[in-house]
């Protein structure tokens, strides 16, 4: 069974170490840790080591994905809802995820 994947455009950006980006990060992008409790956001970039990025990618935390924030930690820790599941992230991870309002 072969399925042609819908077209995805990749953008080239310098700097950062990881992961896939479909949308270039605008100037008003901010780390998830600062964006806490702001409702829906879109990931534009993820920084971190290769393993962490891969693990987050498997959980659906990829540049381009939309998140719903449920953040009782107010910046210390984040709870995000992605693909119907709730994932908790600690501060260093949340700091490495740049988001824009969706």
């Amino acid at each position: 069974m072969t399925k042609k994947h819908p077209d995805v455009r990749f953008h080239c950006q310098k700097g950062g170490r990881c992961c896939l980006r479909k949308v270039p990060c605008p100037d008003d992008a901010m780390p998830l840790s600062k964006a806490c409790c702001r409702g829906r956001v879109r990931i534009c970039r993820i920084r971190g080591d290769r393993k962490t990025c891969a693990r987050m990618a498997h959980l659906g935390l990829l540049p381009g994905s939309e998140l719903e924030l449920i953040c009782p930690g107010r910046g210390n820790k984040c709870m995000v809802r992605v693909n119907g599941g709730t994932i908790s992230l600690d501060r260093p991870v949340a700091e490495g995820i740049l988001v824009t309002p969706a």
């Binding site: 399925k3 994947h5 819908p6 995805v8 990749f10 953008h11 080239c12 950006q13 310098k14 700097g15 950062g16 170490r17 990881c18 992961c19 896939l20 980006r21 479909k22 993820i46 290769r50 990025c53 891969a54 990618a57 498997h58 659906g60 990829l62 540049p63 381009g64 994905s65």
Partner: peptide, 17 residues
Amino acid sequence: TLDAYPEAVIADHRYGF
């Protein structure tokens, strides 16, 4: 070119599928 590791690209395509 993409500032991405292969596993992220692969995961993205799986989610796309």
